[in-house]
Design a protein around this nucleic acid. Structure first.
Lengths: 235, 235
DNA sequence: GTGACAAATAAGTCTGACTTTTTCTTCCCG
DNA sequence: CGGGAAGAAAAAGTCAGACTTATTTGTCAC
């Protein structure tokens, strides 16, 4: 699942990244490369590479005679999959989950509309297959099977949209859906209405009915947003 | 405007990044660190740092005994502002511009709806100010003045949405809008209908009318999409 | 107080030697 | 003739140390 772990510099990132995104170093904090290198027991070259990566994510800024200063959250590259993973793994998880769900609610309906126009026959078939898989696993606490097909379904929609930016959100959506099943409370079987909606989306895409596909997915994402409000009301 | 240029490794990135995103090295191409270091006349340490950054953008993958292999476009971190800049600066510009405009058409309406709910009094004022600035610069070929207020307007909307992911798209939107004025053909004064829409959006947000704000911005983005189809018709 | 000059500091750079992993080659045995 | 194991080769990965350079801070004279 994790992509970085390779190499010493990857190990450093796997520790420093989460620490920074978790807010352990408040914005403006100053770190020194040599000091960090000692703490992590690696050479300065390795630490420098790690710092360069953090810098490319806009998590920190390296300036001469000053050191490595932590940037405010508002400047982070919050679309970097690595940053998203780190934040989802830390204390910021609920907030990040909400942000991503809102993003989903904006992107997925439009993606579905485009998918209805651009999906290949093969993608239509995959979509139907996923929807059927969801139906088959929708009762009797087969949450894992349901999740698997749910993720695949949304991935196909995003890919079929034909927009590369949408397609790259597949992992994000997967993370959000998986989080809902694994971390959040999920005793019950999935909402039957949601299952029906997915089946109807597959139909709409197959029928090239863009407006209907968009509307249906909008209903799905509205449901996801409401779910969040139930779990963590307020604001 | 450019963020990277600092340091030797930044200079290398400024050359290698655009080259890769422009497709000069086809996916699967193998580069060797030492060779690159020689070509750019920098030490291996510097080149390694550059490669690490490219790796964190998923543009390349570094493997032992193999070298630095270029990854397929489908794996790039296409939301990385740096990658976006590089692609906008290269041959991929039209395609990238289209992707981003589609993304805008998904995100901005939803952001406007949220802004109507969450905008502070100050943000409402800024919004009105921007809209007025657009009106004032909408006639007589004052394209730069118009662009300035247009960018500010959309930035305020995205920030006022209260969603960090939306807020971080401010630079992207700015880039798209600026591109339309500077690179694409733009002899005429801006479409009066678009100007009116912006004013109405400011009103809707001030009136806390989320549905109306969302609808109005959707009209704006639809206009932007149509503009693209006029300039580069087909698919 | 202001401006210039000097010192301190931490990042930036380079080099060369060494290690480790992975792949290719070769060669022997079945 | 095929397959697998041992060895060689190649390139990234790691480390240590010396040196450079930009930036800040502090001081002193005016």
């Amino acid at each position: 699942m994790s992509t970085t772990g390779r190499g010493l510099h990857g190990h450093v990132l796997e520790t420093l990244g989460p620490a920074i995104t978790a807010g352990e170093y408040p914005p403006g904090s100053v770190l020194r490369t040599d000091e960090l290198a000692q703490q992590f027991d690696v050479s300065r070259s390795v630490m420098r590479e790690a710092v360069r990566v953090l810098e490319s994510m806009h998590l920190v800024e390296s300036r001469r005679r000053v050191g490595v200063t932590v940037r405010p959250k508002s400047e982070w590259n919050v679309y970097d999959p690595q940053v998203i993973r780190w934040r989802l793994a830390g204390a910021d998880r609920p907030h990040q989950l909400r942000s991503l769900t809102v993003l989903r609610s904006a992107v997925e309906p439009v993606a579905a509309g485009l998918a209805a126009k651009n999906a290949t026959a093969e993608q239509c078939a995959e979509l139907t297959e996923c929807a059927l898989g969801m139906v088959a696993n929708s009762r009797g606490h087969q949450l894992e099977g349901y999740l698997f097909h749910d993720i695949a379904f949304h991935r196909v929609i995003l890919n079929a949209s034909g927009n590369e930016m949408f397609a790259r959100l597949g992992d994000v959506v997967a993370e959000v859906l998986a989080g809902r099943t694994h971390h959040e409370v999920m005793f019950e079987d999935p909402d039957p209405a949601a299952v029906t909606l997915h089946v109807q989306v597959a139909e709409a895409v197959r029928a090239r009915d863009a407006a209907r596909a968009e509307h249906l997915v909008r209903e799905i994402t509205v449901g996801a947003l409401q779910e969040l409000d139930i779990l963590a009301p307020g604001k």
